[in-house]
Design a protein around this nucleic acid. Structure first.
Lengths: 190, 190
DNA sequence: GTCTATAGCCGGATAGAC
DNA sequence: GTCTATCCGGCTATAGAC
């Protein structure tokens, strides 16, 4: 804590986070992270025992950051419907990245579901946080099947992310964001 | 044609298809395909110059097989609404595989979108075939925005695939298939 | 057409000097 | 804490015998 190494550790996590997203976990090498940070390959093992540990740290960071963002939605308004719309607006800001590389959360999870059960479980944590938060918003509104609705909203978001990435289609992204907001209103109004 | 080698070529494609799906393209090695087929590694280069060429052959095969399946839907009924429902039933048969490894088409495309533009373009072909076929069914029913509806249906399917794989949730898969059929009926009836 | 051997590279991980 | 040198294994791909 407070030592110089913490800065490097953080820089490794940030660079790895970005590379895992743009290139995928399996295609990202220590050399790639070294190139991005300027920190020599061999040095990584002072901060992390294995590549898997870097992934763990990346997911922990994502969970923390997402948690902070969701809390900021809660601070901005007490209306759970408006919170869900704020959350949807947050997604819109990642438009261009999603077209290029898909959803950072969904694509990582899908990649790690293949032949890497331990890492898949870890990457799932980001989804669990989201699912629970969305569910709570529906519960606040006294809507039944809150958990199913949370799954449906996440599915809508993931479906839109896959399609916009597959077809590199920015018009589709815009359409789907409008549709997501319409859906939130349909489910939460009256 | 008709030579012995065509049989081996085909066996390589089938094994690679399966492995690309279960392990991902990047994690699948020639050794893996060799283990699965019994054909020695070095022998692959008689049939394919590079790993990328194997992917090309795999996608070509998928496009052909999917095309055959869609044509069988067309033969079974002239009612485009029923065709879409038949297509939805086809998806249901892959339930367990989707929970384990996601959608074969979507997950491959998402993986290759990252840092492999040429391969991404190739893998897109399967989606283009689907999109066009679904669109034509809506057009037959004289429904406007046929292409947008095709995208919406594909997005629903992809979203459901991602979520069921992320959470290994077979209840959710069942729910989502019911919802997809309800959606098809909603859009095509009256 | 089939198979073995191996080149040549790059990956993750380690050892140890400073 | 930082950095270099290096091991070892697995990878794609090639050469060439049969």
């Amino acid at each position: 804590m407070g030592t110089k190494g913490d800065g490097n550790r953080q820089r490794i996590i940030v660079a790895a986070d970005n590379l895992f997203y743009r290139r995928g976990y399996n295609k990202t090498s220590f050399q790639d992270i070294s190139d991005a940070t300027g920190i020599p390959r061999g040095n990584f093992y002072y901060y992390f025992k294995t590549k898997d540990e870097i992934l763990n740290a990346v997911v922990d960071t994502r969970v923390e950051e997402l948690s902070t963002m969701l809390k900021s939605c809660e601070i901005q308004t007490d209306d759970a419907r408006e919170r869900l719309l704020l959350f949807s607006n947050m997604l819109e800001r990642n438009r261009d990245d999603v077209i290029e590389s898909g959803c950072p959360i969904g694509s990582l999870c899908t990649e790690l579901a293949k032949d890497a059960p331990v890492l898949h479980d870890k990457s799932q944590q980001t989804f669990l946080l989201l699912r629970d938060w969305i569910k709570r918003q529906f519960e606040i509104l006294a809507i039944t099947d809150a958990d199913n609705l949370a799954m449906d909203l996440l599915a809508k978001i993931q479906g839109a992310a896959v399609m916009s990435c597959v077809f590199n289609d920015s018009d589709y992204v815009n359409r789907s964001h409008i549709e997501i907001k319409r859906w939130i209103n349909e489910k939460t109004l009256n």
